[in-house]
Design a protein around this nucleic acid. Structure first.
Length: 268
DNA sequence: AAACAGTCCAACCGCTGCGTA
DNA sequence: GTACGCAGCGGTTGGACTGTT
């Protein structure tokens, strides 16, 4: 079947943007706001396809972009987030205000990869290069007991939005033997599907989860007091109708309503 | 000064997921 | 349930730039 092209290629410019094109795009978005990328080029008088306009705006023209070198702190944060999220550049970019996914992706490929290799770390797996490859499993390393884990997971699989959580969790925690925590001791993203914490005497204080101590995702990233700090909130269950799920509260990467919402987490 | 190699990064391409009719 | 349009994402490309010989 074949989809019609997103734009009439014969009548669109390609390649580097000119100053005039930039000005037109900026002026249009200032007046009309973002969105409707397909119709934007025509409305703005640009001989570009909507995709190209969107990319130019997001990666280069947006006023809130932070230009310039990455700081050491940003470097380390990118490494940690990559070890947890993989090549999810947009999610990583969501944690770095003023940085774009494209910028981070380029920076990763040009700087950080080499940096990790020099440290003897495989940038793909974040393991020592000489460490023998281990078979990946999809078992999720939760801090609850295995039986609870399995029960939780099986119940979670019942609904589509939960499947997203499972796949994300499986992606992040590739294997049981080497919890993420070990690789990033100071960035605790421990994943839990468990009973909601009932007693939390002190906000942001590490809370007990099945014998281990952990912080919520927001706090682990230094976002205490952010609206996504789940230390202060008894997080909801996955889906109101899930019987098994109702006894397995979740507190997973700041997700709300069963939808991954990394970007909603504000960076202080 | 010229040639070449390596690096950087803006932009493109193709795919995927979501919303809608 | 299916087809389609659209926005967004990640991988890749290629031109510009910089350093080295």
């Amino acid at each position: 079947m074949g989809r019609s092209p997103c734009c009439e290629k014969a009548h669109t410019n390609k390649g580097a943007w000119t100053k005039e094109e930039d000005d037109r795009l900026i002026a249009y978005i200032r007046t009309h706001g973002e969105g409707c990328w397909r119709s934007l080029p025509k409305a703005a008088g640009l001989l570009r396809c909507g995709k190209s306009c969107r990319l130019r705006w997001i990666n280069y023209l947006r006023p809130d972009l932070k230009r310039g070198n990455f700081t050491e702190e940003e470097d380390e944060l990118i490494i940690k987030l990559h070890s947890l999220l993989g090549n999810k550049w947009s999610l990583i970019a969501g944690r770095l205000p003023g940085r774009t996914d494209n910028e981070i992706k380029n920076y990763w490929n040009t700087h950080i990869r080499r940096k990790l290799l020099n440290r003897g770390i495989d940038p793909a797996t974040h393991r020592p290069l000489n460490e023998p490859a281990q078979e990946a499993s999809t078992t999720i390393s939760f801090s609850t007991t295995t039986s609870v884990k399995e029960e939780s997971l099986s119940s979670v699989k019942e609904e589509s939005n939960k499947e997203k959580i499972i796949s994300a969790a499986a992606f992040i925690c590739k294997e049981e033997k080497t919890p993420v925590q070990e690789r990033c001791p100071d960035l605790n993203l421990e994943l839990r599907i468990s009973l909601p914490c009932q007693n939390q005497p002190d906000r942001h204080q590490a809370f007990k989860t099945g014998g281990s101590t952990s912080l919520c995702f927001a706090c682990s990233l230094g976002l205490q007091n952010s609206k996504d700090c789940s230390c202060s909130v008894i997080v909801g269950t996955i889906g109101s109708s899930s019987s098994a799920g109702s006894k397995t509260g979740y507190d997973f990467l700041g997700m709300k309503s069963g939808v991954l919402d990394y970007r909603g987490l504000e960076m202080k």
